[in-house]
Design a protein around this nucleic acid. Structure first.
Length: 154
DNA sequence: GCCAACGTTGGC
DNA sequence: GCCAACGTTGGC
């Protein structure tokens, strides 16, 4: 299957690209949106490329790159009563939420701010700049991915 | 199955 | 901290 390209949002106060660099890999836990979950469960493949996006940040934007390192497995936080993303309806036999493992790849030389994306005509179709697009995992095209890489590493 | 109320996201 | 946009919940 052809490689796919994604944008994954994280709040740097919660989990930043620098943290991922330190940890090397992380399970992308805590997603509680079905559309985002389905992307992880059904569409993501090992070696898919990821734009690591800092949301709720100053400024918001793409901080660097990651890759998918493992296919989706049950999100362990759904079983953890102390977690604020605990799901009482989920059981180990029938988990409700899944997440992939994400591996650090690159921290950009140039942070690509949301503003910067908006100003680039080649990136005009990206979901992240569409009004009200809150989805925390979004597909991107290869062309968009390549363009952002080029800007980030120039 | 509709839809109003409510909660969350995330830029500003 | 505000609030627009959107997703989810739950009564009917």
């Amino acid at each position: 299957m052809a490689k796919k390209y994604w944008l994954m949002k994280s709040e740097p106060d919660t989990f930043s690209l620098d943290q991922l660099k330190k940890d090397k890999t992380t399970w992308w836990e805590g997603v509680r949106n079905y559309q985002a979950r389905n992307y992880m469960m059904k569409d993501m493949q090992v070696a898919d490329e990821v734009l690591f996006y800092h949301s709720n940040a100053e400024p918001p934007g793409v901080a660097g790159l990651a890759t998918i390192s493992k296919l989706a497995e049950a999100d362990q936080l759904q079983f953890d009563k102390k977690s604020d993303v605990y799901d009482p309806k989920a059981t180990k036999e029938k988990p409700n939420w899944f997440c992939t493992e994400v591996k650090f790849k690159t921290k950009f030389k140039n942070f690509i701010s949301l503003d910067h994306i908006r100003q680039n005509k080649k990136l005009a179709e990206m979901l992240v700049i569409k009004k009200g697009s809150r989805l925390s995992i979004q597909p991107v095209t290869k062309a968009e991915y390549d363009q952002i890489c080029q800007l980030g590493q120039a």
